[in-house]
Nucleic acid binder design. Structure first.
Lengths: 239, 239
DNA sequence: CCTACCGATCGGTAGG
DNA sequence: CCTACCGATCGGTAGG
């Protein structure tokens, strides 16, 4: 259960979306040499430029002209690869959501069968907060919240598959640990929520109200995670 | 220390701002009958309309024309009462911030000297969550987060005077309760943060990602508050 | 990749 | 002379 390398996380998103097949499905102009590599290159450049600008300036604050300019392509090329601005936005966000979903599953994977449960939960809290507190992740979370009025289904799907997925996985883990007598958690879902907000709450909240503020140092984050995990372990310690 | 009547809370904000003196300070045209009551009436109508629309559609999503139309006045009247759209927005938010600040102080007032500390903290949690979970309060919080990029100083001031004020007051209360041996909270600020996120975290988070979603019932909120308070009390129970 | 253009809408201000 | 208010329209910019 190795922790993923932090900074590569966002790159995976960009590359995945950038490498996706273009939207044209009818009679693609294939030759024997396969699809035109310039198509994928242009699409990847648009996706990367759009990701950068959406995360920095929001949906409304980003114009398609800016995306085209930063990608080094014509505005027409943007619309050749994505139906419209809304589709471009939702495809980028859903690509990241899939990455976050995989992270959630890996994060909790070893917990139900851990031998040193307090140690495993402290370790999980440290990895969890370190992953969530990365500037790109905080910006994405903030972006989705900002656009939840315009894209309610997208926000709901992100919530269900990213933070909600962690809650779901932790609920199952805590249920087993309660049965094993390792935790006193008769309501495992509530315990999972309490864990999440004890470990992540302060950091996520601060980032929403002060988006341009400094990132906490790894040492600060480690301390916040440890104190949150300790409070959780004391509250849910078996009798 | 009675809990404020919920729905009247927002009205206080609107009336306070609406009744404020107009901006003109040089040589007001007073007669023996006092200032023109139409001035205050127009200003109040603009403030109320702007509050409604900003909370519903955000800053960018609200035009001055819409504000004027909903208030039933000419657009020129908006500019006669507020220097520009940004000033209108910040004055409204700061008016509410002052109300929230007073609420924070009253909320925690009796805690440091409480005799039944667990009972007082459970009671505080119920009043705290009930106040914060009101739709108007959740919408205001969301609005400030949405505009934290455009109005960073405003977001920082709101955070400091509203949720931060609760943390500050609780920190002092927990420090005294720790000294009295009623809580085991050697780091009272961290304890105050843990209390806040245990009691409020899930409700605030859900409202951000699903702003059009249903409000939890008072019974649900009471249960969430009680379980959060119980987890806090177990985690910080003196030895 | 640039310029041009569309239908629409914005915040702010003119005259009366 | 003042404040308050109106109908009309300004220059500039957005997505497409």
């Amino acid at each position: 259960m190795p922790a993923p390398e932090p900074t590569a996380h966002e790159d995976v998103l960009i590359l995945r979306i950038g490498a996706a097949a273009p939207r044209t499905t009818d009679a693609p102009p294939r030759t024997e040499r396969g699809p035109d590599p310039r198509v994928a290159r242009t699409r990847a450049a648009v996706a990367e430029a759009a990701t950068t600008l959406f995360l920095r300036n929001g949906y409304q604050g980003t114009s398609v002209d800016e995306i085209a300019a930063l990608a080094g392509v014509a505005k027409r090329s943007v619309y050749n690869n994505f139906a419209d601005k809304q589709t471009l936005f939702t495809e980028l966000v859903l690509g990241y959501t899939a990455t976050a979903e995989e992270f959630a599953d890996r994060l909790v994977a070893g917990l139900p069968d851990a031998t040193d449960v307090p140690g495993a939960i402290r370790d999980l809290a440290g990895r969890h907060l370190a992953a969530v507190a990365r500037p790109q992740v905080l910006r994405l979370r903030r972006l989705i919240i900002l656009e939840a009025g315009r894209f309610p289904d997208l926000a709901a799907e992100y919530y269900r598959r990213a933070p909600g997925r962690v809650i779901t996985a932790l609920t199952e883990a805590f249920r087993k640990l309660h049965a094993r007598g390792e935790l006193d958690a008769p309501d495992p879902q509530r315990a999972a929520e309490h864990y999440s907000y004890l470990v992540l709450g302060a950091t996520l909240d601060t980032a929403l109200f002060n988006p341009a503020g400094p990132t906490p140092s790894p040492e600060d984050l480690q301390q916040i995670a440890e104190q949150g995990a300790n409070a959780f372990l004391t509250a849910y310690r078996p009798a």
